[in-house]
């Protein structure tokens, strides 16, 4: 199964992160996972920090009979995701939200997260602009670490969580922490891209 990359047009959304090598690596990983995703028969799928919306929309184009949600802290990104959904004739529900704090518990069968992973000063984690697309604070982990403890309350019991990590994020620490929450892991893809060593990790129970 080929996961066709969704069309997008960010010409009216200058303050939204443009899909880049990390986004396309994520799509490659989801393509590899496609058979497993079909078998899972997911009902609700969400992307955190959807930006342009290219990842969730590509998934929505390929996977039928699921509800697709996309949250972003940047309202401009929510609008871009909404437009990308339209451009590809898919139904994506955008919401402006900080992570998934206002959803009822255990609603999602699939979570996709390409986080702000760049190592920055903690002070850069402010506002709701494009800086939030990459600024990760200490070890590039501050936002990732905010989400991880909540995963058991967000995912359904059969749920899968896909996370992109940078080598500097110390993936082993993340994997070990998720293990303490009862999650097994599998590295779906790893690739060195323009000086960044990236991993796509799958977590499930």
């Amino acid at each position: 199964m080929h996961l066709q990359t969704a069309e997008y047009d960010l010409s009216s959304h200058a303050d939204v992160y443009e899909p880049s090598e990390d986004s396309f690596l994520f799509l490659d990983a989801l393509e590899e996972e496609f058979g497993n995703l079909v078998d899972l028969k997911p009902l609700n799928i969400v992307e955190i920090g959807s930006g342009s919306g290219v990842i969730i929309t590509s998934l929505a184009k390929a996977l039928k009979n699921a509800n697709f949600f996309a949250v972003d802290i940047n309202m401009s990104a929510c609008k871009a995701t909404q437009m990308t959904g339209e451009l590809n004739a898919t139904a994506i529900q955008p919401l402006c939200m900080d992570l998934l704090g206002q959803f009822k518990e255990n609603m999602f069968d699939v979570i996709v997260f390409n986080p702000p992973y760049v190592v920055t000063d903690s002070e850069e984690l402010c506002g709701n602009g494009i800086n939030r697309a990459w600024a990760g604070g200490k070890d590039g982990r501050e936002i990732i670490d905010k989400l991880l403890p909540k995963i058991p309350n967000i995912l359904s019991c059969k749920g899968i969580f896909y996370l992109l990590l940078l080598k500097e994020n110390k993936p082993k620490e993340v994997i070990d922490f998720m293990f303490t929450l009862g999650f097994a892991h599998k590295i779906i893809k790893e690739r060195k891209l323009l000086g960044e060593y990236l991993y796509i990790v799958k977590f499930n129970k």
Binding site: D15, L87, I130
Partner: peptide, 25 residues
């Protein structure tokens, strides 16, 4: 990053419109 623009040929037919908020949500 801020200034880059991706030009996609406009599609003449749109099957759907912008998705609004569903009662499911």
């Amino acid at each position: 990053i801020v200034s880059s623009v991706v030009l996609i040929p406009a599609r003449s037919v749109h099957k759907s419109e912008l998705v609004k908020m569903k009662l499911l949500t």
